[in-house]
């Protein structure tokens, strides 16, 4: 079994793994977008910049304070999430009564500011972030070599997505959250502090993006543009999946990553556009999205 469809097996599985990893990032980012959109009715354009900040904070923790990967995995989302909470309180919260498009425009502006500031300070070329000692190995699976870190990224992302799903679907807090998504005024009338929940939800969504950023730091070079190109693909993923369902967002993310990986094997020129082409097809066949409610 050296060849599959005339493609050398290591190449095929290698790209499949890369696809799974990209899919993991799509899943985590579109999940965060869906959670934020559900409650705030705002498409968080800053999401890509916050993903980038997550990676940069991990880099700063390591190079400025000597704090390693595992602590960064916890601290970076907390720090970036806290910044998100401040942004929500100071700026975004003023827009809830307006057309949703203003939320998109404001968060786009914020993304420009954050990206510009990082570019001024760190330049456009990337910074390297070492793979943590414990994960720098590579396993021989027989049909391919699996760098342990890459496997870890997929597992960590899947666990994180599942955890988020469990919190939202199976806990009391999640029940409040889903209720507030349906009818915020009514939930408020029952004595739940909805504005605080909105703020914390935004913080949590942002923290999720930052967590993805830390995971990405050792794989991609840490650079100010790493979020902005990713976020446009994630928007397409969101259009394809529809934002109605948490699990839908996660599955769509992973699925599209894998499809993208396979496209790289069979038709490399189309790999950059395949997600958008699928978006077009879904719009033609099922305009509300795969998991969306019409």
């Amino acid at each position: 079994m050296d060849d599959i469809f005339g493609i050398p097996a290591p190449l095929l599985f290698g790209q499949l793994l890369l696809g799974l990893i990209n899919g993991a990032f799509y899943a985590m980012l579109s999940l965060g977008l869906a959670v934020i959109f559900g409650l705030l009715n705002i498409i968080n354009f800053t999401h890509g910049a916050q993903f980038m900040m997550g990676a940069f904070v991990a880099w700063m923790l390591l190079n400025w304070l000597g704090i390693g990967y595992w602590w960064a995995l916890l601290l970076s989302p907390l720090i970036v999430g806290a910044i998100g909470v401040v942004l929500e309180r100071l700026l975004i919260s003023h827009l809830y009564k307006l057309d949703h498009l203003y939320g998109l425009l404001l968060t786009f502006g914020l993304a420009l500011i954050i990206e510009g500031l990082f570019r001024n300070y760190f330049g456009s070329s990337g910074l390297a972030y070492r793979i943590p000692e414990a994960l720098s190995d590579s396993w021989d699976l027989g049909f391919m070599f699996l760098p342990v870190y890459r496997g870890w990224v997929v597992v960590a992302a899947a666990v994180m997505c599942l955890g988020t799903w469990l919190v939202i679907e199976k806990t009391r807090l999640g029940a409040y959250l889903r209720a507030a998504t349906e009818n915020a005024a009514l939930v408020q009338a029952f004595g739940v502090n909805v504005p605080r929940m909105v703020t914390l939800t935004y913080g949590a969504g942002v923290a999720l993006a930052a967590f993805a950023g830390v995971l990405a730091a050792p794989i991609y070079s840490v650079n100010p543009q790493m979020g902005s190109n990713l976020i446009i693909v994630v928007f397409a993923v969101v259009v394809i999946g529809g934002m109605g369902s948490i699990m839908g967002a996660v599955l769509t993310g992973f699925l599209l990553g894998v499809i993208e990986g396979l496209t790289k094997v069979f038709w490399p020129e189309a790999s950059a556009t395949v997600v958008f082409v699928i978006m077009v097809i879904v719009l033609l066949v099922r305009p509300a999205g795969l998991f969306g409610r019409a």
């Binding site: 998109l104 556009t273 997600v275 958008f276 077009v280 305009p287």
Partner: peptide, 27 residues
Amino acid sequence: LAIRRQGIYFAMITMGLAQMVYFFCVQ
């Protein structure tokens, strides 16, 4: 294609389509 969805989705769809054109122009 894009007018099949409204509001926020319309914005995201037009953006995705434009990015497709961008990648087309790169190649």
